[in-house]
Simulated scan of single mutants.
Amino acid sequence: MPSSITGRLLRPAAVLSAAVLAVSVAACGSADDSSGPTATTSPTASASTSAAAGVLGIRDPWVKAADKGMTAAFGTLVNDGDADVTITAATTEVSPMELHEMAMKDGKMVMRAKQGGIVIKAKSSHALEPGGDHLMLMNLTKPVRAGDELTFTLTFGDGRTQVFTAVAKPFTGAQESYAPGHGEPMPGMSASPGMSMSPTS
């Protein structure tokens, strides 16, 4: 067959193959986009959680600045996975740490160790915040000044670990004092809602 005729026959076939391939790729992209966890989250949340590249996404981590004694780390933990995740321990270089919660006792808000660890349900988020669950720094070996960056390591129930960094900020919202003693009332904390729970920038 003359080459000119062969060329005319092959060109439509090539165009048709390219069109079929393009449709197939587009279909795969649509399926992936609609089923992915970021399809229902905001661009900001997506960027924050994916940047962690670990077991959990960690949004807005921060530490209460303190000169000595105790303080705590906070943030929002995001679990985009299909299974619950349990934090069983946390460590940092400037202090031994424990997982803590706030709970009602005799009509007062008290701080105590979080039994069983901190659970982040599948496809959900869990806030670490003043007045709630938090990562407790028990005995600072040096002051934590506003602007300092601390590195933390989380250990999970299945043995995996994850490192994240949090910046120290001044905080006066609830006037809480992380006093020694589990289950003791925290001065300035009350059971009433509406306390300010935000660090000052």
Rank of each mutant, 00 (worst) to 15 (best):
S30V: 15
A31Y: 13
A31R: 11
A31T: 14
D32T: 13
D33K: 10
D33W: 12
S34W: 10
S35D: 12
S35M: 12
G36A: 15
P37Q: 03
P37W: 15
P37Y: 10
T38P: 01
T38D: 13
T38F: 13
A39W: 08
T40I: 13
T41P: 02
T41W: 14
P43H: 03
T44V: 14
T44G: 14
A45P: 06
S46G: 14
S46K: 07
A47K: 10
S48R: 14
S48N: 12
A51M: 04
A51D: 11
A52V: 11
A53V: 12
A53M: 12
A53G: 09
G54V: 04
G54Q: 03
G54D: 05
G54L: 04
V55R: 12
L56M: 04
L56P: 13
L56I: 05
G57I: 08
G57L: 08
R59T: 15
D60T: 02
W62E: 01
W62C: 00
V63S: 01
A65N: 00
A65P: 00
A66W: 00
D67Y: 01
K68E: 04
K68Y: 03
T71K: 00
A73I: 04
F74S: 00
F74E: 01
G75D: 00
T76E: 11
L77Y: 10
L77R: 03
V78I: 14
V78W: 08
V78N: 05
N79A: 05
D80I: 14
D80W: 15
G81D: 15
G81K: 08
D84G: 03
V85A: 10
T86M: 07
I87K: 02
T88G: 08
T88R: 11
T88S: 11
T88W: 10
A89P: 05
A89T: 05
A90M: 11
A90C: 14
A90I: 12
A90K: 02
T91L: 03
T91V: 09
T91C: 04
T91Q: 09
T92A: 14
T92M: 07
E93I: 02
E93T: 10
E93L: 09
V94Y: 01
S95G: 05
P96R: 02
M97A: 08
M97C: 12
E98P: 01
E98A: 10
H100A: 15
H100W: 15
E101P: 01
M102Q: 10
M102I: 08
M102G: 06
M102D: 06
A103C: 01
M104F: 12
M104V: 07
M104N: 07
K105W: 05
K105H: 10
K105P: 02
K105A: 11
G107V: 04
M109T: 06
V110T: 02
M111E: 11
M111H: 06
M111G: 13
M111V: 09
R112S: 10
A113V: 12
K114M: 13
K114E: 15
K114I: 05
Q115L: 09
G116Q: 02
G116W: 01
G117F: 06
G117W: 06
I118Q: 08
I118E: 09
I118A: 09
V119L: 10
I120V: 15
K121L: 10
A122V: 06
S124M: 05
S125K: 07
H126V: 04
A127D: 15
A127V: 13
A127T: 13
E129P: 00
P130N: 00
G131F: 06
